[in-house]
């Protein structure tokens, strides 16, 4: 079976693979560094990548953003990543356990939870406890994804039972339900509220420090650009990266 399938599959894929590499070569860059990063790092890592490209002639940084667990799966299936930045330690651990990291992961940022409501805060949310009130249309992340796990832990620590109307797959989905006014409140990260600007109203709560999400970064094993990957990580954990991350609301590890 495989003898027949493999050539067929190759015949299908190779023409497109050729197109793909043509494109990246066309830019005039000598080297491409591929960075897989959690979706919540989108704006900050775009800035860090710009800084990195400015400091390294002929190097192009390609960024792929997604849910941390999706990215881990992709790397496990052979995706050509040089660096992986995760939104939580659990997903980085998966990569470490699979022997797919080139060096020990380093923590580079922390994030805490914040409540987002539509700008006019129709349900009058003022505390995390308010989220459990009757009649509040609350949207959270599903417990399977990092932001949902953090929300669940927070509710447990405060002895609350939340009754969300929807458990979304990512922070951005939660935010979308809030900005469109469908939900009265959503639990997201501090950095998401900062990034959303006027589209949402942020409600901070004193207990937010009880649950802190740590972001680790590591080079991917067998990277062809191991040295560059290392330099990129140094930039993220160094002054440049920390400045950009701090501006976006991330905490220092």
């Amino acid at each position: 079976m495989k003898k027949l399938l493999v050539p067929l599959a190759l015949a299908l894929v190779l023409p497109f693979a050729a197109c793909g590499s043509d494109d990246s070569d066309g830019g005039g860059s000598d080297t491409t560094l591929t960075v897989y990063a959690a979706a919540s790092l989108t704006s900050t890592f775009e800035k860090i990548a710009d800084e990195f490209e400015a400091a390294h002639d002929g190097v192009e940084v390609k960024l792929s953003f997604g849910g941390s667990s999706d990215l881990v799966t992709q790397i496990q299936e052979g995706a050509p990543a040089d660096v992986f930045a995760s939104a939580d330690t659990a997903n980085m651990d998966k990569l470490v356990d699979a022997d797919l990291t080139g060096a020990d992961p380093q923590d580079f940022a922390t994030n805490t939870l914040e409540i987002a409501t539509p700008p006019d805060n129709p349900a009058g949310i003022a505390s995390f406890q308010d989220l459990a009130k009757d009649g509040v249309d609350l949207v959270v992340c599903a417990p399977e994804v990092p932001c949902g796990a953090a929300t669940q832990t927070m509710a447990d620590k405060l002895g609350l039972t939340l009754h969300p109307v929807s458990e979304e797959e990512s922070v951005t989905d939660v935010l979308a339900k809030v900005t469109s006014g469908e939900a009265d409140a959503g639990v997201v990260y501090v950095t998401d509220v900062t990034a959303a600007g006027d589209a949402v109203n942020g409600v901070t709560f004193p207990e937010s420090g009880k649950v802190v999400n740590t972001y680790p970064i590591a080079p991917v094993a067998d990277s062809k650009n191991a040295d560059l990957a290392d330099e990129f990580i140094q930039m993220v954990v160094g002054d440049t990266g920390q400045q950009i991350l701090g501006d976006a609301g991330f905490g220092q590890p």
Binding site: V139, A142, E144, P164, V165, S166, E167, E168, E169, K177
Partner: peptide, 17 residues
């Protein structure tokens, strides 16, 4: 519709989750 078990989480959403 969102995604909540028993209310809106249909099979494709369940698989995605």
């Amino acid at each position: 519709a969102g995604s909540l078990e028993g209310t809106t989480r249909t099979l494709p959403l369940f698989i995605y989750n």
